[in-house]
């Protein structure tokens, strides 16, 4: 058993626990990376897809090969990713504490301690994404949405519908049943309807340009499709027609917040499902043939692909570079959180 430190968000204590079985109120204080067999692949072909694996494949099949098939990632998480993970954990904990009947002031103080503990483990390299900024983002956000009109859905188990993991049969492709997987940050009731909610952090202004980045996009239609399927299957959640997106601007000394609903009509969703057929089919073809071509047009996007430093080496030397500066972990969409 691997034990790591966890924060017990109800008892306000720090304990050791097995991260593979721990659940709320135990919040892991460090990431548990495993390198087990990837359950989302069968005979080398991915059959369970989430937005991360699909988006990576669309970006570049070679990147998909390195990141998803082989599981390579930098030894140190990029600060933006680490900060985003910590923010998600904090807000998830907040909603879980409220669902567990903890009063708001106590929940806030416990979230502050958790933010401090998580913040001390954030990687260096970005002055807007350190411990101080994490705690501030948490306190200012919770103050802004103290009486949040978007009410977190409470499941029949009494737990908050946060970090909602799903694995749903989608369609058959070449005789293989394809599953759609993912984790929805929160289901919230707002304005008489249920929305799948998501948090995004940015250093930039939360204007139309910021929100415009999220449609079209790979991630959100998957959540809307999943919400439809979950609603049909469980009767516990109503079907959704949009994403409630909370943008969080992080600066060194301030935060700003902005909330938008990103709507998706049934026609748009049908169009996305056609796209899923196409892209998942191409991904499976690449897995079957073992051919993962580079998409050189993506190398420079978003500040440059991490794997550019590998792809720009002669093919015979790439493996050695990967072994020296990267670690391998399994990105398995079937793992629930």
């Amino acid at each position: 058993m691997t034990s790591i430190l966890h924060y017990n968000a109800i008892e306000d204590t720090i304990v050791e626990a097995d991260p593979t079985t721990s659940s709320f109120p135990l919040i892991p204080l460090s990431r548990h990376e495993h390198n087990n067999e990837n359950g989302s692949f069968k005979d080398g072909v991915q059959f369970a897809w989430d937005s991360t694996s699909l988006g990576t494949f669309k970006t570049c099949p070679r990147k998909y090969y390195y990141e998803i098939v082989m599981g390579y990632q930098h030894k140190v998480l990029p600060p933006a990713l680490a900060f985003g993970i910590a923010i998600h954990l904090l807000f998830q904990t907040w909603h879980q504490l409220l669902a567990a009947d903890v009063d708001k002031e106590t929940a806030l103080l416990n979230c502050v301690r958790l933010a401090g503990l998580l913040g001390e483990k954030l990687p260096a390299g970005d002055t807007a994404r350190r411990k101080e900024q994490l705690i501030r983002a948490c306190v200012w956000y919770l103050d802004q949405f103290w009486d949040d009109p978007a009410k977190t859905v409470i499941l029949s188990t009494g737990k908050a519908a946060v970090e909602y993991s799903f694995t749903l049969p989608l369609f058959e492709q070449d005789g293989i049943e394809i599953f759609l997987c993912g984790h929805i940050d929160r289901f919230a009731k707002w304005g008489g309807r249920v929305l799948a909610a998501d948090y995004k952090t940015s250093k930039y202004q939360l204007d139309q340009k910021f929100f415009g980045k999220f449609k079209p996009v790979t991630q959100f239609p998957i959540y809307v499709i999943a919400a439809h399927l979950i609603a049909a299957e469980t009767q516990e959640l109503a079907s959704t027609d949009g994403i409630l997106l909370d943008g969080i601007q992080v600066g060194v000394n301030f935060n700003r917040y902005n909330r938008h609903v990103i709507p998706f009509s049934p026609e748009e969703i049908n169009e996305y499902i056609e796209g899923l057929h196409y892209w998942i089919g191409r991904g499976m073809d690449c897995c079957k043939t073992g051919t993962f071509p580079m998409n050189e047009e993506s190398c420079g996007n978003y500040g440059g692909c991490d794997f550019r430093e590998i792809c720009n080496k002669p093919p015979a030397r790439r493996e050695a570079y990967l072994k020296s500066g990267w670690i391998q972990r399994t990105w398995d969409p079937l793992q629930s959180r």
């Binding site: 103080l109 502050v112 401090g116 503990l117 306190v139 200012w140």
Partner: peptide, 16 residues
């Protein structure tokens, strides 16, 4: 953060 008592956290929240 490991050493923060509730009063320390309250002070942090007040100051923030």
């Amino acid at each position: 953060a490991n050493d923060w008592a509730p009063k320390d956290r309250l002070a942090i929240v007040t100051a923030l």
